[in-house]
Design a protein around this nucleic acid. Structure first.
Lengths: 231, 231
DNA sequence: CTCAATCTTTGAGCAAGCGCAAAGTCCGAC
DNA sequence: GTCGGACTTTGCGCTTGCTCAAAGATTGAG
């Protein structure tokens, strides 16, 4: 494995402000791995013996019901720690982490968590913040599920996606990884049929453009208007 | 104010295992307060300058949408810390805490948080666990909202309530504080009308018994069956 | 006791969105 | 190229649960 470059970490919240030697030491404890689209990074219920930093890509964390339905509880954009069950005192991962795009991650054994916490002063606060942000996000999504109609929920989901991973094109903003109707339905608590119908309608109106597993938002303002509609 | 008794804390997770003098010191930094039913303990967006331990009662944490709808994101049973926005790096409370029953709380200024964390070894891990449990709960509720029908969601909510605060009576298990149809609808993302209709139906079938703001579950097994029904 | 406020019940009509089904399309493997 | 699998589209019928409306019940204040 190639030696990892220190600049990978110097600007990320949990590590910024650390000395070169500290960062060198942190990197030397890490393993870098690549995951193809659709690959599982960890599974629900597995012992949480590693934690990760997402260098590049996009991850979704899903939970399954007993009936086999999946719902996406969380999205993780590049630059964030994840799989930090340890930080909240859990022994196992509470969900399955799937690579939504091709992902490059750094991976440490959980044992190092306590070392990092002890040795690097800002680390603990920084990860607490990460947890806090996630808690807030989940609460927002819960609120959306409880109060918004399907149309507004899907609009919100698309807006979130283009904000986090959008790539500008000549026509609009494209979501930077393949996304099925099924995926969107799992994010919004609906069915792939309803998502398909809605995207078709939006396409007819020129709000979005979509081919096979590719979605481009053409008219962001219109989506925002949809997202406002209360149910 | 009467001097607080040390036995209040000796068996609660964040403090168990501490010496009498430590507990004495912790109690001396606390203020004890009482809140009537319906009173706000803190409000959404207020600076998080205090944190709390719920000695007795029951609290619900609600968030409001711009349209004024409220949804309950969390319930806190007696014995738990709450208002610990500080532990997750937040400056303000992310929701409103309402006394669902009459509540007795201990209250510390946020400044002491760091002291506790530094001085009492288990405190930090214990609060991290609390955060972890809450995150898990919220994810479960999100999953329910996304996948279950209203009937199953209300059944689940009732079961949770009688588990956390149920008081056995001759007929069944009564929820130990006043609870309106509106409250239940805010917990389950539906309307008070639907809740009312459903409770009426259940009452006809002998599953629950309810008068004004009082609900008793007579047939727990039947509710559990309802909660299983997928939608 | 009386009144007002809050909470609850119930009806009727309606629309959102689901389930089912079938056909069409795209893509990668070979 | 061709084949199979995964993904998408669309129609139709129907159920769930919402909205609107109005009346009844319970409680607490004065």
């Amino acid at each position: 494995m190639p030696r990892l470059d220190e600049s990978l970490l110097t600007h990320l919240p949990p590590f910024d402000g650390l000395s070169r030697t500290d960062i060198r030491r942190i990197l030397d404890g890490a393993v870098s791995r690549r995951f193809e689209i659709g690959a599982d990074i960890f599974r629900e219920g597995e012992p949480a013996d590693r934690f990760f930093l997402l260098l590049d890509g996009y991850i979704r964390v899903v939970r399954s019901t007993e009936a086999g339905e999946q719902i996406t509880v969380l999205h993780i954009p590049a630059g964030q720690l994840f799989g930090i069950a340890r930080a909240i005192g859990r022994e196992t991962y509470p969900g399955r982490a799937v690579a939504a795009a091709e992902c490059i991650v750094l991976c440490w054994p959980t044992g190092l968590w306590d070392d990092f916490t002890r040795q690097y002063p800002g680390f603990s606060l920084s990860t607490a913040r990460t947890v806090g942000v996630r808690l807030g996000e989940i609460q927002s999504r819960m609120q959306e599920l409880a109060t918004l109609h399907v149309e507004a929920r899907i609009a919100t989901a698309l807006l979130r996606l283009i904000t986090q991973t959008g790539r500008p094109t000549e026509a609009g903003v494209e979501i930077d990884f393949p996304l099925t109707r099924q995926d969107l339905s799992e994010m919004t608590g609906t069915t792939l049929h309803t998502v398909s119908r809605l995207l078709s309608a939006w396409q007819r109106e020129g709000v979005v453009q979509s081919q096979h597993r590719r979605i481009t938002v053409l008219d962001r303002a219109r989506l925002e208007a949809c997202a406002q509609h209360r149910g």
